[in-house]
Design a protein around this nucleic acid. Structure first.
Lengths: 242, 242
DNA sequence: CCCCAGACTTGATCCAGGTCAAGGTGAGGT
DNA sequence: ACCTCACCTTGACCTGGATCAAGTCTGGGG
């Protein structure tokens, strides 16, 4: 009994994981989940703790299996650009060759699944389909980044905030997007994080959100809770149409 | 004789190609080059001609085998963000799922090698190593993009131009980087392109370059020909250190 | 050789967003 | 309940880069 206990647990770790449905792990068949589990390890990161240091040697890939994470790069004088937020199912670590091109830190308590490069190598050797999934993941990320570059290079502060809100709405999943009016949003990140994500200052973020509220586009209750009152108009602003 | 003539030519197309050394094609053995050639086709694009329409269905991948290409996204009102310049050996088309997330247009006469998705699928099925190369290519691109997002979100105009110049120097290859002083650069793109790449206006690009010249950092002869007089200081500016 | 069109530079002015400086506000501790 | 600290909002002012408006250079055609 004891001898079969541990593998059973390991198998369970993967089969119940959010990554099973949404992440690269779905490239692997149920019957092979034990192998997947044996090549990876679970990791809990407390709020605010950095777990990838920009420029440090890249040893691991990660899948976010719980909570949220922010990805960023720094300039020597401390200016920060958040290049993305990652959450359940997101894959981390593609933007690296010998060393990581970015830093990462938990936004709230985050749970991660860590895959050492050597493990991933063994997995891709054994499951060729996984390599294809990694490419898909990279493509998705590239597509997002292209849109973000346009945001950072060419959009006004209003357009950036509107785009950001629409992005958060899309993350809620397709079921919430058709909602006739009023969409409830929870922003888990601070104003500082939003500012560093959008290439603005915290004051500008605050002012633009207040302006949106004054114009009846959104409602703000508490700091994190936002109601989108007029999704259509917010969307139009995001695209630069008003 | 005739029956062997065509394969021979096809084989030659790939073996002499710049992509053979630098691009994804090096994932394929010499003896299989005929297969590679038979799945792809050469394509010449005249100056300024667009060959990928943003949002159009994505049917092909491309390798740039000659000349240069610019990649961009547009906002509905015509604002443009150039997200990258591609040249010899660069791979194009990863930032796409069903449709392209970007447009592309020749910068000068460009020569491309086109791989329909179905062909690429057959190639990756047959040469698993190729899928790995594609992921590497995507990783490289992601790394570059992360740096560009920091540039667009957080750097000043001077820092952007300095970063741009350093980027062009790195493209010359490692041999030119150790040069004690004075590096010759040719900028093949217009000021408008530089502006759209750096998230600035053409006037600001012009002014900053003039300022660099006035300060003795660079020399400008003709429009395209630039001499970097003080690479160290330009590099320092690029990193935000002065 | 000169003309012309398109691309670049330069100058004057403006304004979106940054900076600096007070206030609010709310979650956690006592 | 009240304090407190960290975070957020708001206001006043400033400035880097955009915008608007002339010039100027360059290279290709007649």
């Amino acid at each position: 009994m004891t001898s079969s206990r541990i593998p059973e647990e390991i198998h369970d770790r993967c089969s119940h994981c959010i990554g099973r449905e949404h992440s690269i792990c779905r490239a692997i068949e149920d019957c092979d989940l034990a192998i997947l589990a044996s090549e990876s390890s679970k990791m809990t990161v407390p709020n605010g703790r950095s777990f990838i240091e920009e420029g440090s040697p890249a040893h691991d890939f990660f899948v976010v299996t719980g909570g949220r994470v922010k990805i960023f790069t720094l300039l020597p004088d401390g200016r920060r650009q958040i290049t993305g937020f990652a959450e359940g199912g997101d894959f981390l670590g593609l933007a690296a060759s010998k060393s990581y091109a970015f830093g990462a830190e938990a936004l709230g308590t985050a749970v991660l699944c860590r895959f050492p490069h050597a493990s991933m190598q063994r997995l891709t050797d054994r499951f060729p389909n996984l390599e294809h999934r990694l490419r898909q993941e990279a493509s998705r990320e590239l597509t997002l980044m292209q849109a973000r570059m346009t945001l950072l290079g060419r959009k006004t502060a209003r357009e950036r905030l509107a785009t950001f809100l629409m992005e958060r709405i899309k993350l809620l999943g397709p079921m919430c997007q058709g909602t006739p009016h009023q969409i409830e949003l929870d922003l888990p990140m601070s104003r500082t994080d939003i500012a560093d994500y959008l290439g603005l200052t915290i004051e500008t973020v605050s002012r633009v959100l207040s302006a949106f509220k004054r114009e009846g586009l959104i409602g703000i209750r508490g700091i994190t809770h936002i109601t989108i009152m007029q999704p259509e108009r917010v969307s139009a602003i995001a695209e630069g149409l008003e």
